[in-house]
Design a protein around this nucleic acid. Structure first.
Lengths: 336, 336
DNA sequence: AGGATACCTGAATGAGTATTCAACACTGGT
DNA sequence: ACCAGTGTTGAATACTCATTCAGGTATCCT
């Protein structure tokens, strides 16, 4: 039988006779519109229940029954799926920032709120959460979370030391502390600077049991909450006393670094950028980080776009929470 | 006595927050469009299976997920042919509404689904589609359409301004937007009210390039998707803030008008009814409208019967999508 | 405050549905 | 006639999903 390409014929769809179509529609109506159960329909029409099931399946296949999902305004399901698909993520949350201008303050709040909701709905207990620190986005997230009556996580572990002055070290600690309180988890702090003055200094510090004990827990984390760093100047970093010296930053840029997670830097393809800095970082190492089952990246703003894209390309994240603008850009990126 | 309850659920919020809507939509898409099983979804989103089940139920209740049973073409072939013959139409699609009572909700869905199928099978690419707005029937149509993988139309153009409050203007815009997304076409909006407050006001508005540029495209449309207005009170129109003032309506009735397409009114013979209103309408004009090669009227319900019959008599339409009740009446009408 | 109500949750479970499987019926070819 | 091949059927069953239930929390009302 020569197969016809043109499908503009008058009667009978898909090689099904009109009388069968009648039966199909009848059954479909009974089931979907009148809410009858299959055995009921079977009895009434004197056919077997499996037959009803098959008819319904066929009706769906032929398009007689169609189910549509309508995306409500202000929700960006397609966008989220597109990004998930492109970069192989488990989940993407797009915060609707409305028409916020470059003044990132409201975007920050929106991302924080979205991330907070994400955490509240997906933290069900038993997680050991790592949290990278001193990120204003993470701060916004924690600020937006509501305290849970009963524990929804076991541990909250600080995966990177405090950075800069002792003031911002407290800052870092407070973030972990707040999250621990909100989730009812035990907080585990890393009482150390994030960046030792030299690799030798780092060696000395990691022999301290207070520090090595904490770092030993990194391997058993089930989740990591990570801010993304970009190598653009960030207001908070600046204010907190130059986390990374300008010279270091320049060196990293020369090596092609565009961003970092927990001070582990990567280039625009998401490839690790090794540098002298690595030997001075007191925090989770790259391999351990990448072995965490659920890494949640929370970041937005066009300033961080390059870093976000790189992190996705490199497969650093499993879940991304970001804003609408960034999401729109990501959705049109070529796949990694 | 309007038995229809809140039909203006465009904000789609039944006391549900946006973040919840987001989750609902996401789950709904995973289940219905990607065919994932509930446990799978639960695992990926870190929620429990019962929760997925409940979310899906809620999504259905809120109308985010809707299931329709359509009558396959050809089941009412004789009826369709009869109407085509009598009124010289190119195509007629009769939606079987089952035994639905005056409560027009299910009839609306059936017509919408039938129209959706018609569009899906006859849009093959290259069309420039005009769409009249704020019609609940058109809304139902767009809702029932399934996204096509590749573009099947070039443009979707809004041929009449928004009507009523700013809320329902968005309504109008979204209709065009959704259709554009579904067909992969470029959306062109008419950023204006459908009815200016005076003919002078209209003159001012049409000098705006944002508006005149859009209106300039009307001449090259290859297809028009039109709802039919009747001069009976329509629930949607009423709720959306009295599109047409009562006084205007009375005047039109006195002139013999029984219905309209894109606010161009006609009497029971389908003859144009000129009135002062014409000078205030921001939308496609009668001549341009009637020169469009394929005008598809989508309307049903006995409330609109007179208007539908008049439109057919006047030759306003090339294609009609309607319900079984109206079709039966039309089939026994004397030819125009 | 206290207490009652309404609500939400996940584990367990029962309801409802899809699929397997063996039997059977129909083709068309030898 | 006979027999692959193909398709259809219903009984049994494996599967998926919706609901119950118990335990808990917010909120309102006294």
């Amino acid at each position: 039988m020569p197969s016809e390409r043109g499908d503009l014929r008058e009667p009978a769809i898909g090689g099904v006779s009109t009388s069968q179509l009648r039966l199909l529609t009848k059954v479909a109506r009974m089931y979907h519109e009148h809410g009858m159960r299959q055995p009921q329909i079977a009895e009434q029409l004197h056919i077997s229940q499996p037959r009803v099931s098959r008819l319904l399946k066929q009706a769906t296949a032929l398009g007689i029954v169609r189910t549509t999902v309508i995306t409500p305004a202000g929700v960006h399901a397609e966008l989220e799926e597109e990004i998930e698909r492109r970069f192989g993520l488990r989940d993407v949350v797009v915060a609707d920032t409305g028409h916020s201008s470059p003044g990132e303050q409201s975007a920050l709040k929106a991302i924080g709120a979205a991330a907070a909701v994400y955490l509240e709905t997906t933290l069900t207990g038993g997680d050991r959460i790592g949290i990278s620190s001193w990120s204003s986005t993470l701060l916004a997230t924690v600020d937006a979370m509501r305290p849970r009556p009963n524990p929804v996580a076991d541990q909250v572990v600080q995966v990177i030391g405090g950075v800069g002055s002792s003031t911002s070290q407290i800052y870092a600690t407070r973030l972990a502390d707040r999250l621990a309180i909100l989730t009812g988890a035990k907080a585990i702090f890393l009482p150390a600077p994030g960046l030792a003055t030299s690799s030798a200094a780092r060696e000395v510090l990691v022999t301290d049991p207070h520090i090595s004990d904490v770092m030993a827990t990194y391997g058993s984390l089930t989740m990591l909450l990570a801010g993304l760093g970009s190598l653009e100047p960030s207001p908070l970093l600046m204010e907190s006393g130059n986390a990374i010296a300008d010279t270091d930053q320049d060196a990293l840029r020369k090596l092609g670094a565009v961003g970092d997670i927990c001070l582990r830097f990567f280039d625009e393809h998401g490839e690790v950028v090794k540098s002298a800095l690595d030997e001075r970082v007191l925090g989770i190492d790259t391999d351990t980080l990448r072995s965490i089952p659920r890494v949640v990246g929370i970041a937005g703003g066009t300033r961080k776009y390059t870093a976000i894209r790189a992190a996705l390309r490199g497969g650093w994240l499993d879940v991304l929470v970001t804003d609408l603008d960034v999401a729109r850009c990501l959705a049109v990126e070529p796949a990694p």
